[in-house]
Amino acid sequence: MFETRIRKVGNSAVVTLSAEMLAALDAREGDTVYLVRGDDGSLKITPQNPELAEALAAAQIVMDENRDMLQALA
């Protein structure tokens, strides 16, 4: 487990990732990462994954096309 703090920078809140955290993610400065919310409310940081990005883009298209139906089901 890693520990870090949230701090204010301008009008944003940022989380600093140490070199050790970046190594564990196999990521480096400037890379894109995703925060994925778990069913328990937790957040998971995952490195950029082209397959995940493609799946999320496809899901967004489906949600946009079926917005009314999805709202009725919610």
Rank of each mutant, 00 (worst) to 15 (best):
M1N: 14
F2A: 09
E3Q: 14
R5C: 06
R5P: 03
I6H: 09
I6R: 11
K8G: 01
K8E: 03
K8Q: 12
V9M: 06
G10P: 00
G10T: 01
G10V: 01
S12F: 11
A13H: 15
T16E: 12
L17I: 09
S18W: 03
S18M: 03
A19E: 10
E20N: 07
E20S: 07
A23V: 02
A23C: 01
A24S: 09
A24D: 08
L25S: 05
L25Y: 06
D26E: 08
D26S: 10
A27P: 13
R28I: 00
R28L: 02
G30Q: 03
G30Y: 03
D31H: 04
T32L: 11
T32I: 07
T32E: 15
V33C: 03
V33L: 02
Y34N: 08
Y34P: 10
L35C: 14
L35M: 15
L35Y: 14
V36R: 15
V36I: 07
V36L: 15
V36P: 12
G38A: 06
D39R: 09
D39G: 14
D40Q: 07
G41C: 01
S42A: 11
S42D: 06
L43G: 06
L43D: 13
L43M: 10
K44C: 09
I45C: 11
I45D: 11
T46E: 14
T46I: 12
T46R: 14
Q48H: 15
Q48K: 13
Q48A: 12
P50A: 02
E51I: 00
L52S: 10
L52R: 15
E54V: 04
E54L: 04
L56I: 07
L56Q: 14
A57F: 03
A58G: 03
A58F: 05
A58C: 01
A59P: 10
A59Q: 15
A59W: 02
Q60H: 08
I61T: 15
I61V: 14
V62S: 13
V62R: 12
V62I: 12
V62W: 12
M63A: 12
D64Y: 07
E65N: 13
E65F: 01
N66H: 12
R67E: 15
M69I: 09
M69N: 15
L70M: 11
L70G: 14
A72N: 13
L73M: 15
A74I: 01
A74T: 11
A74M: 08
